[in-house]
Amino acid sequence: MSTGSRQGRVEMTHGGGGRAMARLVEELFVAAFDNDLLRRRDDQAQFAAPTGRMVMSTDSFVISPLFFPGGDIGSLAVHGTVNDVAMAGARPLYLSAAFILEEGFPLADLGRIVDSMAAASKEAGVPVVTGDTKVVERGKGDGVFITTAGVGMVPDGVEIGGDRARPGDAVLISGTIGDHGMTILSLRESLGFETGLRSDSAALHGLVADMVASVPGLRCLRDPTRGGLAATMNEIAGLSGVGMMLDEAAIPVRAEVRAACELLGLDPLHVANEGKLVAICPPENADRLLAAMRAHPLGAQAAIIGRVTDDPHHFVQMETAFGGRRIVDWLNGEQLPRIC
């Protein structure tokens, strides 16, 4: 690969449709994402349609800072969409990627992001088969925005959806909550935080495949990203027309995440995750599902954290470790540090 496309800064000509753009696409994107479908240079990717049900999902990624312990916007853009596809119990097949670059953005940084994205896609085994690049004037973007879309295939017999939770079902989580959100928040310079935290950003489709193989009757899968576990539980409660009862003591939270939340007045249940999933299954399958999750590296700290209840109000409640009860509500507004 020529290093020419990794020096200097993004200029308006990089999105102008001329030779500079062609060179950027060729030397940076195609070289990094290299695969048969992308190499054909068509305006679209053509592939054979598998039989059965397909799923499709898309997500946009805007994050500050662009690089953080445990990942960057590139790896996040792959993991996020792979996970959204996987939460149907599906096997992700292909990704698309669209970049909006801001004039003046260092090409070296873009190179790092694209390399990281390519590495994440290769590790996940889900190639980026089509893409697009646009450049906006300086001041009209935040360095780089990435939108990815993904398609995948649902294995026969798998029926997973947010409306399928039933009273009595078990609620499981694949590991510690809040790692990604607290990592990002702690990097805000105004807070001056120093932590050893890392984002949990990861592609979860391998874990999902093991779970589906172990418990085909799995009812719901969701990745608790923005709004955290609280938002996901409320979403499922609403879609399924049920209530939830969580057990606070069973929910895994790292000591550092807990401490940072105490310092900022935040609730770990509202903090974002990028490599965790919530699963709901019939109670008789819970132990088997938990064993399957714990056998996978991304589910090593999985736990049964509650049960689905019959509740006309669709309340998500929690038995607190202290011995009381409370509602676990949606995050109200944006997640901001409190002083009071």
Partner: peptide, 8 residues
């Protein structure tokens, strides 16, 4: 410091 989290 609280549980490994430091701040000024």
């Amino acid at each position: 410091e609280v549980e490994g989290v430091r701040r000024p």
